[in-house]
């Protein structure tokens, strides 16, 4: 198996410059950071898609229909008149559907988040615990055979503090 190269940076802008350079040269890169860098990354490397919104939408609509089905359907399954109101009353039905819209919308958002971010995953992966404190990491993965020197040179040029060739590091699950 190929090894990957993990470069650790102190400064975010250096990391982003290195990332841009490497991505331009056609490497697979992964950026690690202790804080969200979404805005900066998008600024540097171009915008990313947000698929979650579709799932949220589908979830909300499904929740709406689930609420309608639950309130109207169960009322029709066992007809019990109460309070001189119709079996199918608009107002309480809408209120119930409102809550289920939110509930199932949240559930779908949660599921799609787990799906897209590939969490939870407890298998061993390349990682360095310092990333969660104050280091930024840049991982160059994939078809690297014979090109380690070039990658490492680029990382060093951009100011990486530390460069490691790794298969799997201290990640504990």
């Amino acid at each position: 198996m190929d090894k990957a190269v993990l470069g650790l940076f102190t400064y975010a802008d250096e990391l982003l410059d290195a990332a841009k350079k490497l991505e331009g040269s056609g490497y697979d890169i992964t950026i690690f950071s202790p804080i969200p860098l979404g805005h900066e990354i998008e600024h540097k490397l171009g915008p990313r898609k947000n698929h979650i919104k579709y799932f949220t939408f589908i979830g909300s609509v499904a929740g709406l229909f689930f609420g309608l089905l639950l309130t109207l359907g169960t009322a029709a399954m066992y007809v019990i008149p109460r309070g001189g109101r119709p079996i199918w009353s608009i107002t309480p039905t809408l209120l119930m559907s409102y809550e289920t819209t939110i509930l199932i919308g949240v559930m779908f958002t949660l599921m799609s988040f787990l799906f897209f971010s590939k969490l939870p995953s407890f298998s061993k992966k390349i990682y360095d615990p310092r990333i969660n404190v104050d280091y930024f990491g840049l991982l160059i993965d994939g078809n690297l055979r014979g090109r380690y020197d070039e990658v490492e040179r680029i990382l060093r040029d951009h100011g990486a503090n530390e460069i490691k060739r790794v298969e799997e590091t201290e990640y504990n699950s």
Partner: peptide, 10 residues
Amino acid sequence: LRSYREPGYY
């Protein structure tokens, strides 16, 4: 279905 919209139902 229409009957379900009747107030008091019966």
